[in-house]
Amino acid sequence: MSVRRLAKEQPASWDFAPVTLEKAHWWISKYPQSRKQSAVIPILWLIQKQDGWVCEPAIRKLAAMLEMPVIRVLEVVTFYTMFQLEPVGKAALIQVCGTTPCMLRGAGDLMKLCADKIGHKDHISADGLFTWQEVECLGACVNAPMAQINDYYYEDLTPQTLGQIIDDFRAGKAPKPGSYAGRHTCEPAGGATTLTDPALYDGSKAAPVKIPNAPEPA
């Protein structure tokens, strides 16, 4: 993490899209009228969903909407690294996990690939389609190395599979999320090695259990 600043180039104005506005009002309605600032984080998410990033006019608009000082919104936006303060790639925002398990399993190679195919870290690519970032642990260590691309996790990646995924995004396709090592979610690679007895699953081992302190059946 480094010092977070608003982008140098900002749009002159910004407005809620109708669908964003509707969802924003739904969030505001969840809180008491005098506490509507509580909706600031959900609505910032919506703004980011609409544009891919949070621009300065949007911060002012949101502050006015929630009747809170604009500096308070800026504090929230800069506090949370999940809010993008610069425009991101239109096709994909690739967040490669670089924390220890992923690093040991080859995240460095993924980042090198990203640098080769997309360009500098944290900067939008020349064609405006991609941004890639290194992020801290995304909690999918069992499927390391992995990356979050837009809203989904892409797991068990290799430079080949990630390269293919990037190419698919560039081609306008929506690659399937999940493991790219051929396993179902986080099952052991190469199949299960324990709890393999089918009798575990057919109910035959089920025996009536006396639960202590359970009320007697009437």
Binding site: V3, R4, L6, I71, F79
Partner: peptide
């Protein structure tokens, strides 16, 4: 306000 966090926290006025 205080923007950013941790080591990068800074005191500033809006813009």
């Amino acid at each position: 306000g205080m923007i950013s966090r941790g080591e990068d926290a800074e005191i500033t006025t809006y813009l």
